[in-house]
Amino acid sequence: MFSVPIVDISSYVDPNGSPADREQVARALDIACGGVGFIQVIGHGVDPAITEGLTTALDEFYDLPLDRKKRYARPGENRGYTPPKSESLSMSLGVPPANRMNDFYEAFTVGAEREWYQGVDLPESSYSDNTWPAAAPSFQPAVLAWFAAAREVSRVLLTAFTDALGLAPGYFEHMIDYSIDTLKMNNYTLPEGEIELAGELTGMGAHTDFGILTVLWADRVPGLQVLDHEGVWHDVQPADGALLVNLGDAMARWTNDRWRSTVHRVDPPVVDGRILRRRSAAFFFDGNFDAVIETLPGCARTDHPGYPPITVADNINAKLAGMKAGIAPEGAEREARRVLAAG
């Protein structure tokens, strides 16, 4: 029976959490990351008011007319507004969709800027300045509050992951002190007449995430599907108050597939010819741009050669080129075969 395990991480959120409780959490995370690859996290400590502020801000922006939202687009960049059918996430694995740029969702992306990390020489390509929509006044403060909360959850989880992998405390600290953190906020429904709903409809194409881990808030509306190890798609909805967490390609590479970045997609729920409203906000905790992803201590196997070393930025940029420009990345053959076999 497929299920996404629920793990209470409150003992790691609490700086005085007991070692015994933390050991139990680390064991549960190891089992989840090596199996399903998705986790429902509770006890995460995020104030519900911050989540409510985020949803209000998303509604304020996405309720604007499409032509007004497009004023905040930055084509080809991983910032700002993305109109519907201008990306294809399956191409981040080199799997072409039925129509070249077919993903129906619209999105708004913000991320860490160079000025956030003083005293470090950082490339603008990975740490671009953000665009903020003046037409939605509540957007920037609410999104930044959620960004900070999701970032804290990510760092708490990485501490627990470090224990789960049997690594020395603080093992990853020098790889995340100027992390390329990105928040992509998605909307899966539009007013009638704004886009033609013809042919095969893909909410968000099958893909893996690119970095260390993803913290996802989503409406409790059907749509998210996860691909299991037998090539079968399963519907996943977050439990009340839970955050969904999944691993990215960086962690799969680091662990030499002891833990996997699980393939997932979104099929927008259609009822009586209309798409139900579905919103989500995915925080991508990616690591420093120059951190090298190579097999971690204890994860080498003679029967499973490790991935070739690659920097965090090079890995992300290759996947983004597939998603935004249709250029198939190298090294994604395993995930691509799984998606193609599932259909």
Rank of each mutant, 00 (worst) to 15 (best):
N78Y: 09
N78D: 04
G80T: 00
G80K: 05
G80M: 03
G80D: 00
T82Q: 09
T82M: 10
P83W: 06
P83Y: 04
P84I: 01
P84S: 12
P84R: 09
S86I: 10
E87L: 10
S88A: 15
L89Q: 13
L89D: 08
M91P: 11
L93N: 07
P96I: 11
P96Q: 12
P97F: 13
P97S: 13
A98L: 14
A98T: 15
A98C: 12
N99M: 15
N99G: 15
R100V: 13
N102Q: 15
N102I: 12
D103Q: 13
F104I: 14
E106Y: 07
F108Y: 14
F108T: 06
V110I: 12
V110T: 09
G111P: 01
A112N: 02
E113D: 02
E113S: 05
R114V: 03
E115M: 01
E115Q: 09
W116K: 08
Y117P: 06
Y117E: 08
Q118N: 09
G119E: 11
V120I: 14
D121V: 13
D121G: 05
D121N: 13
L122W: 10
L122H: 07
P123N: 13
P123C: 14
E124P: 08
E124Y: 11
S126V: 09
Y127G: 03
Y127W: 04
S128P: 14
D129E: 14
N130C: 09
W132A: 02
W132P: 04
A134L: 04
A135N: 05
A135H: 05
F139W: 14
F139M: 09
Q140V: 04
A142V: 05
V143K: 10
L144N: 14
A145L: 06
A145S: 14
W146S: 12
A148C: 08
R151T: 09
R151H: 08
R151D: 15
R151K: 12
R151C: 07
R151S: 13
E152V: 08
E152N: 11
V153A: 02
S154A: 01
L158I: 00
L158Y: 00
T159K: 02
T159C: 02
F161S: 02
T162Y: 02
T162N: 06
T162P: 06
D163W: 03
D163I: 07
A164D: 08
